[in-house]
Simulated assay, not measured.
Amino acid sequence: MPRRGGPIEKRAISNVQKVLAVSSGKGGVGKSTVAVNLAFSLSSLRDPTTDTRLRVGILDLDIFGPSVPTLMGLQESGEPELTEVGALRPLVNHGLPTMSMGYLLPRAPDTDSTHDTPVVWRGLMVQKAVQQLLFDVDWSLGQKGTGLDVLVVDMPPGTGDVPLTLGQLVKVDGALIVSTPQDVALADVRKGIAMLRKISVPIKGLLLNNSHYLCPICAPSSSSPTTHPPHYLFGSPERFRSTAARLGIPVLAELPLVPGVSAAGDRGVPYGLVDRVWREPEDGLGGMEWIEGMAGVASSLWEALNTSNTQ
Rank of each mutant, 00 (worst) to 15 (best):
G272E: 10
L45R: 01
L252F: 05
E289W: 03
Q143V: 15
D60N: 09
P7T: 09
T114G: 00
P225D: 13
L207V: 15
G296P: 09
E292C: 12
L151C: 10
W278H: 14
F64A: 14
V36D: 02
D112Q: 13
I199A: 11
V56Q: 08
P250T: 11
K171N: 15
G30F: 10
F40M: 06
L74Y: 04
D136K: 07
K144M: 10
Q132I: 00
I203D: 10
L88Q: 09
S77A: 15
E76K: 13
S179K: 04
V19S: 08
E79S: 14
M125K: 11
G260K: 12
R276A: 14
L74G: 05
K31T: 08
S242G: 01
R241K: 14
D47F: 11
G65K: 01
L88A: 02
G248M: 09
V150Y: 05
Q132Y: 00
E81S: 14
R279V: 06
A295V: 07
K128F: 12
K18V: 02
G160N: 09
I63A: 07
I58A: 01
A21R: 01
P225M: 09
A244Q: 04
S224A: 15
S179I: 08
I193F: 00
R4T: 14
E9R: 15
D161L: 00
S43T: 11
M101W: 08
Q311R: 14
F240K: 03
K128M: 08
P181T: 11
W278Q: 15
R267E: 13
V277I: 10
P256V: 08
V19F: 04
C218V: 07
L124C: 07
L71N: 04
G268E: 04
R107F: 05
L151Y: 02
G158T: 11
L91T: 03
R11P: 01
K198D: 08
Q17C: 06
L164T: 05
R241P: 06
P80G: 03
S223C: 02
Q127M: 12
R241V: 11
C218R: 08
L273T: 07
I249K: 10
Q17W: 03
P181C: 02
G248D: 12
E79A: 15
G205L: 01
H228A: 08
T159V: 12
R3G: 09
F135D: 06
K191E: 02
G265P: 10
L273S: 06
G205E: 03
R239G: 08
L214D: 03
P163E: 02
G284E: 04
R107I: 02
G65L: 01
P7C: 09
Q75E: 15
P216A: 12
G27F: 03
P250W: 07
V85T: 13
G123I: 00
G30H: 00
G158H: 08
A187G: 05
L54I: 05
M101L: 12
F240H: 03
D112I: 12
A264W: 04
L196K: 02
S221A: 15
T83K: 04
S221V: 08
S221M: 13
S100D: 07
G28P: 07
S200N: 15
T33C: 10
D154W: 01
T165I: 05
G5L: 12
G145Y: 04
R3Q: 13
D275Q: 13
L151V: 05
